[in-house]
């Protein structure tokens, strides 16, 4: 039997990843509605299989491109999704709380589908990207964005549960979700970690930019966008710790921050074809 070469596999495997995640999502949804142990076991099998296939995909990409798959926007996207699902799985296993999956999986799935649609593996890599600093920079950013995503999702869940409790019409969120305190803690910790990582990431990026771009970096839209996100999350930490913007207000700030992240990411990658994209 002829072993299919890496490039054919790279056509199939990413969609297989989507397939697994889609099935996990369906199962998480069923679990959320019925909360039966049987579904829970099945769901975890699907998700772990998905993670397995995704890991294979990341390995294949690394073999094909010759380095970690962080060289272009859409490569970063799938790596981000991969890292994110790992973090989620670790969370689920350590907390024993599966109801969050129904909120996490759609985000992961969307990231993966976008990556699959637009990925272009044939593009040559800019020589600057072969530096170790660059890979550290991107890795930090991916971790930070994962943390922000977790904060976003837990904040959404906080808002949903809190609204249900304020309205006094207790429904499925009250019945299924863990406590407000749980979401609050998780979201705040994620923002704290994310903010720390993104700060180091920006400093590293600026340092490299100084060397490579020789002064042009100040007006780089991606940098501007990320500094604004940094400011939003810093605002989150500040208001929360000083003037008591706990709970719902903090959750709203986190949601705004994440929306800005997504929005700026789309705007920057579609309309500004600048040096930061290395094209």
């Amino acid at each position: 039997m002829k072993v299919p070469d890496v490039s054919t596999l790279l056509q199939v495997v990413p969609w297989l990843v989507c397939f697994f995640y889609a099935f996990s999502f369906v199962n998480y949804f069923a679990y959320f509605k019925k909360k039966e142990q049987q579904i829970a076991n099945r769901t975890r099998t699907w998700l772990i299989s998905g993670v397995g296939v995704h890991t294979l995909y990341i390995v294949l990409l690394s073999i094909y491109t010759g380095h970690l798959p962080v060289g272009s926007t859409f490569l970063v996207l799938t790596t981000c999704a991969w890292f994110f699902v790992l973090v989620y799985l670790a969370l689920e296993l350590s907390l024993g709380e599966m109801t969050m999956g129904v909120f996490f999986l759609p985000v992961i799935l969307v990231l993966q589908v976008i990556s699959n649609l637009f990925i272009n593996l044939e593009r040559p890599l800019a020589p600057v990207l072969n530096e170790i600093f660059f890979e550290v920079h991107v890795a930090l950013m991916i971790c930070a964005y994962s943390a922000f995503t977790i904060s976003f999702i837990t904040s959404v869940m906080y808002i949903l549960l809190s609204r249900e409790m304020q309205s006094k019409e207790l429904g499925i969120f009250f019945e299924r979700l863990p406590s407000l305190e749980f979401f609050d803690k998780l979201s705040n910790q994620a923002v704290n970690i994310g903010l720390g990582l993104v700060s180091v990431g920006i400093v590293l990026g600026v340092y490299m930019g100084l060397n490579v771009w020789e002064g042009k970096w100040v007006l780089d839209p991606k940098l501007v966008a990320v500094v604004i996100s940094w400011a939003i999350y810093a605002f989150h930490v500040l208001t929360r710790t000083t003037i008591g913007w706990q709970g719902r207000r903090a959750a709203i700030v986190s949601v705004v921050g994440f929306n800005w992240l997504l929005f700026s990411f789309l705007i920057v990658t579609t309309f500004f074809s600048k040096v930061h994209n290395f094209q």
Partner: peptide
């Protein structure tokens, strides 16, 4: 139930 939903 309410207290546990808020405070864990």
């Amino acid at each position: 139930d309410l207290a546990e939903k808020i405070f864990g």
